[in-house]
Design a protein around this nucleic acid. Structure first.
Length: 265
DNA sequence: CTGGGGAGGGGGCCC
DNA sequence: GGGGCCCCCTCCCCA
């Protein structure tokens, strides 16, 4: 069991942002057949019961948000194999556990419902909501993060943090890091992007598609394979400017310099 | 302290 | 223009 998988940092430090109204609606939409707060056990095929977006969000602080990606069920993410299905149009499909003996179903529900808080309209995509807000709906409450026609500022502001972007696409990408729409059906951990979730699911399945050519090791993540390959290299990629020592990773070089090995540097 | 694996995030490119 | 993928990076943990 992966370590960092057990320690869900964002449970304590990263807070998904949802309105209380969303929480209510989320709770309301939780199928009663989904047991809550049930710890997954080895024999419990309902490991997905930590229904994440409900159980822990409900205890989170909430923030006002004009955009309301309501996660009705574990997840807003489209099928794992997204190649054939746009994330915003997935239909409800059964979500299955991602246990290694029972490979995770790629059918991870992504059901975004974006509500305009200025009127009662709902949209299935953020872009649709954005377009609505930009063209039709004048904000009457809260502070809009998306630009409106009346706004002369060219930037698209994130309402969750001070960042701003020059394009809606970039903002949408960024907002995902707040809303974490991709939820693991097995453990409920949420991610900003589908491929991050796919990588995470490999921690459940044990799949390691990236094999090292030089040894028998295999990795679930390409980046980790790349880092591993450095260990086979005699000359490491990262070199200390002071003592010329080389390291396989930037982080090792940083630790090296931070440890005071080369105080002059 | 060092080396390495596991996991996750952001930016940018490509289709 | 948007989504997916890749690269790079960082952090955490353990031996």
């Amino acid at each position: 069991m992966p370590r960092s998988f057990l320690v869900k940092k964002y449970f304590s430090s990263k807070k998904p942002y949802y309105r209380e109204s969303q929480l209510e609606s989320q709770t309301a939409f939780v199928p009663e057949s989904f047991p809550r707060a049930e710890l997954p056990t080895q024999n419990n095929s309902l490991a997905l019961t930590c229904y994440p977006t409900n159980s822990f969000f409900s205890s989170m602080d909430t923030m006002p948000a004009p955009l309301s990606p309501v996660s009705l069920s574990p997840s807003p993410l489209g099928p794992l194999d997204l190649s054939s299905s746009p994330s915003s149009s997935s239909s409800e499909e059964e979500e299955d556990g991602g246990r290694s003996s029972d490979p995770p179903s790629p059918d991870i529900i992504q059901q975004h419902i974006y509500h305009c808080l200025h009127c009662s309209k709902s949209y299935t995509s953020l872009s649709a909501l954005s377009h609505h807000q930009m063209s039709n709906c004048a904000p009457q409450q809260q502070t809009p993060s998306l630009p409106t026609k009346v706004s002369a500022r060219p930037a698209f502001h994130c309402k969750h943090c001070p960042k701003e972007y020059t394009s809606l696409g970039a903002l949408k990408m960024h907002i995902r890091s707040h809303t974490l729409p991709c939820v693991c059906p097995t453990c409920g951990k949420a991610f900003s992007r589908p491929w991050l979730l796919r990588g995470h699911i490999r921690t459940h399945t044990g799949e390691r598609p990236f094999a090292c050519q030089h040894c028998n090791r295999a990795f679930a993540d390409r980046s980790n394979l790349r880092a591993h390959l450095q260990t086979h290299s005699e000359v490491k990629k990262y070199q200390c400017g002071s003592c010329s020592r080389t390291f396989s990773r930037m982080s090792l070089l940083h630790k090296h310099t931070a440890s005071g090995c080369c105080p002059a540097s």
